[in-house]
């Protein structure tokens, strides 16, 4: 699996050919960091930025924020709050799901209902 830095660099460079607003400088300005800092993040010279900046980066690069946070070794604060509210139950659930295939995990995600119309 790619490192956090190389992953976002690959994604950003894939976008910049079509959209100049995805240049390193423009993306850095959009998420509110110095271009030099983002450059170091992309080269894995420094640690990934804060949760807020990673979520902003996910929005700019059209990536899943949970995926980027996980790659950065972080857990989003909303997920942490969910675990803290029911630590034993959620812990048990996650361990149970650990070995399950994706389709089984997806089956416990709340689906949008379809009714009579």
């Amino acid at each position: 699996m790619n490192s956090f830095g190389s992953y976002i660099r690959e994604k950003r460079e894939g976008l910049v050919a079509e959209d100049k607003s995805k240049s390193l400088r423009q993306v850095a300005i959009t998420i509110g960091v110095e271009p030099a800092f983002l450059s170091k993040v992309e080269r894995d010279i420094v640690s990934p930025p804060s949760e807020g900046k990673i979520i902003a980066l996910a929005e700019v690069l059209n990536e899943d924020p949970d995926l980027l946070l996980a790659m950065a070794g972080k857990v989003s604060s909303d997920l942490l709050a969910i675990v803290k509210a029911r630590p034993q139950l959620i812990g048990e659930l996650l361990r149970e799901l650990k070995e399950q295939p994706d389709h089984a995990v997806l089956s416990v995600v709340r689906n949008i209902t379809d009714g009579d119309w």
Partner: peptide, 20 residues
């Protein structure tokens, strides 16, 4: 938002359509 999560008062019948 999921439509079934809210009290729609006299429009509760809208929930039978499901959705958002």
């Amino acid at each position: 938002r999921h439509i079934e999560d809210f009290d729609l008062v006299d429009k509760e019948h809208l929930k039978k359509r499901g959705g958002l």
